[in-house]
Every structure is written in structure tokens, then in C-alpha cells.
């Protein structure tokens, strides 16, 4: 439903977005990741028709955003960054305005307002002017505006920014639910959000797409993916290391902690381990039983999105070791 083809945007000499292409289908939730200033908001502004692209094409529900802007804008709901709204209006008059702009009048308007007020829990503040609201309510008012016409495509720029943990959870649930029937793009800095909500994630850095895949695929790019974390009781670090070197599939062993006969370590699969990678945890368990060590913890790492994010967007620095 959203099709972006080699989209670029230049401000003077600076290329804010450089040759970005992707597609979002109905029922998909695409998470947009990237450091500040990577071009996330600029890309979203081009999709919603606010910025004209320097080159490339965006089409939404089959309408070219540059050539048929009105038809394209009708199909979209947009929550801009920092959720702007008209401060002197009341929540109700603001929602009425948004509904009227979307061509909703009379009964259709009333039921649309009732729906978004319920969805975004705005019933307590309907009569208040927006400048008297807390940040969370301001944010949800703007979110309500974006879904008032039940659009097929939703573009949300940092929809959970500034919300408390409960509100964050609610917005995530909402996005996930709406994602079943709509095409949604949202940007965020919170990586756990991507895992919780997205069916696909894209990392952009310096205006370019540097990774694109399901959260699982992205996590598998982590150097930690497939590593086995073990905590053993009843052996010294040196003996454990010596015994583990007997397993061919293990490339490198990193002792994280060792005291009072308790060893915590991480075993990374060898580069040529192949199919044995998946059996690594089993091998280590077998070894521990043979040596009659007590296993306190045994876990295969899925990889960490944060690490992938850091290694992609800051290639010069090494990912922080054992950040947790």
C-alpha cells in the first residue's frame, strides 16, 4: 500500500535521504529505526506529502503523492513528530476540525469522534483547551486526529515519545491491533518496541537504508546470535575452559564471572560450525552432566537488536561488551 522508490531529499548540499526504497503491504507494521538525524522524519514527511521529494517516487494506495496529492492524503493518517496541535482549541473542537477536514459530517462525524475518544481515552479532557493538557494527553489528542477517518495507511513519527510506561504499552497494543488491517509505518528509538510491535524493521543511517528485515532476521545479524550463556556450579574457570575447548563447534569462550566455584560464561559458535550451531546448548549440557557440574542457567542468545543497531550505525566503535 505504501511504495517508496529510490526516494531522495537534499537540503542544499546535504542529502538527508539518499536513494531509499521499500514497500509496506496491508497488515504490515514497519518499524523505522535510526539515530537522530538519520532521515526518518524526512522520509515520513515525503510519504505524507509535506516535503516534495528531490527525486524518486512515493505512492500510497496506488496514488502518486506528488501527482495526486489530495487523493493520496485522504488515505493517510499522520502523527507528526512532537505531536503538534492548535493550542487554543479544546480537544473536542480540534477533533471536530480534523473530522470536518476529512469530510466527516453529522452522524458520521459524531461516531468517528466517539470512536477515537474511546480508543485514545480522551473522554475526561474533551472540554479542556489543548495548552492546558499534560504531554501524554497532547500526544494522544494528536494521535486521535490521525485515526479519525479510519485511514488505510498510518504514518506515526515517534508515537510513544513522552508517554509513561502504561500509555506506551497502550499505544503499542493499539498499533499492533490496527496493524492487522492497515499498513503502518512508525519510527522509534526504543528497540524493544520494534520487537513487540513490528512485523518488519528497517534501520536507516545517514539517509540510507542499512538493514531491512523481520526483527528476528535483524537480531540474527548480531555477533551474539547463537552464543550460549551458561552458569555452572562445581568447577573452576580454567577446567571449564579446558573441557569446553573439546567441543569442536565452539569457537571462543568468554568467562563473564567466576567466584566460589561458580562460573558464568558465554560460548560463541565457531565460524565453521554450520548446523552444529543450533546443537551447541545441548553439547554443553551433555558435557556438564558428564563432568557432574550443576547447571544453573543455560540459554541460547537470539541476538540483541541494540547491538545490531550500534554495530550498523556506529561501525567505528565496537559494540559494548556485556552491557547488561
Amino acid at each position: 500500500m505504501i511504495k517508496v522508490e529510490s526516494l531522495s531529499k537534499a537540503f542544499g548540499d546535504k542529502r538527508a535521504v539518499d536513494d531509499v526504497s521499500f514497500e509496506v503491504r496491508k497488515g504490515e507494521v514497519l518499524g523505522f529505526l535510526g539515530p537522530n538525524g538519520a532521515g526518518k522524519s524526512t522520509t515520513m514527511r515525503m510519504i505524507t506529502g509535506f516535503y516534495p521529494p528531490t527525486s524518486g517516487k512515493v505512492s500510497v494506495c496506488g496514488f502518486d503523492v506528488t501527482e495526486q496529492p489530495i487523493a493520496a492524503k485522504k488515505t493517510m493518517g499522520y502523527l507528526p513528530e512532537a505531536a503538534p496541535s492548535y493550542q487554543e482549541m479544546t480537544v473536542l473542537s480540534f477533533l471536530k476540525f480534523a473530522a470536518e477536514m476529512r469530510g466527516l459530517r453529522g452522524d458520521a462525524q459524531r461516531s468517528a469522534i466517539r470512536r477515537v475518544v474511546d480508543t485514545c481515552h480522551l473522554d475526561k479532557v474533551l472540554g479542556q483547551t489543548i495548552d492546558t493538557l499534560s504531554k501524554g494527553f497532547k500526544h494522544r489528542t494528536c494521535l486521535a486526529q490521525s485515526i479519525i477517518h479510519d485511514p488505510e495507511v498510518l504514518v506515526l513519527d515517534e508515537p510513544t515519545d513522552g508517554l509513561d510506561p502504561n500509555q506506551k504499552h497502550e499505544v503499542r497494543t493499539l498499533i499492533k491491533r490496527m496493524g492487522e488491517t492497515k499498513a503502518i509505518i512508525f519510527s522509534t528509538h526504543i528497540l524493544e518496541e520494534v520487537e513487540a510491535v513490528c512485523s518488519r524493521a528497517m534501520i536507516i543511517d545517514r539517509g540510507r537504508v542499512v538493514a531491512n528485515g523481520t526483527p528476528e532476521e535483524l537480531k540474527a545479524m548480531s555477533t551474539r546470535a547463537g552464543a550460549v550463556l551458561v552458569t555452572l556450579q562445581g568447577a573452576s574457570a580454567d577446567t571449564v575452559r579446558a573441557r569446553l575447548s573439546g567441543i569442536a563447534a565452539i569457537g571462543r569462550v568468554e568467562i563473564l564471572n567466576s567466584q566460589d566455584g561458580r562460573v558464568m560464561l558465554e560460548a560463541f559458535p565457531a565460524a565453521n560450525a554450520g548446523a552444529d550451531r543450533d546443537a551447541l546448548a545441548g553439547r554443553i549440557a551433555e558435557l556438564a552432566i558428564r563432568e557432574s557440574w550443576t547447571i544453573q542457567q543455560l540459554k541460547t542468545e537470539e541476538g540483541r537488536l541494540e547491538e545490531v543497531f550500534r554495530s550498523i550505525t556506529m561501525p567505528d566503535t565496537h559494540p559494548a561488551k556485556g552491557a547488561e
Binding site: P69, K73, A98, M101, R102, G103
Partner: peptide, 14 residues
């Protein structure tokens, strides 16, 4: 200043 121009011009208006 408030950024509402982004809201206004992404609604179906020219």
C-alpha cells in the same frame, strides 16, 4: 513555530 503547518498541509488540502 508550533509545527501545526505539518498537520494542516498533510490533510487533504492544497
Amino acid at each position: 513555530r508550533l509545527g501545526t503547518i505539518e498537520l494542516l498541509l498533510t490533510m487533504p488540502v492544497t
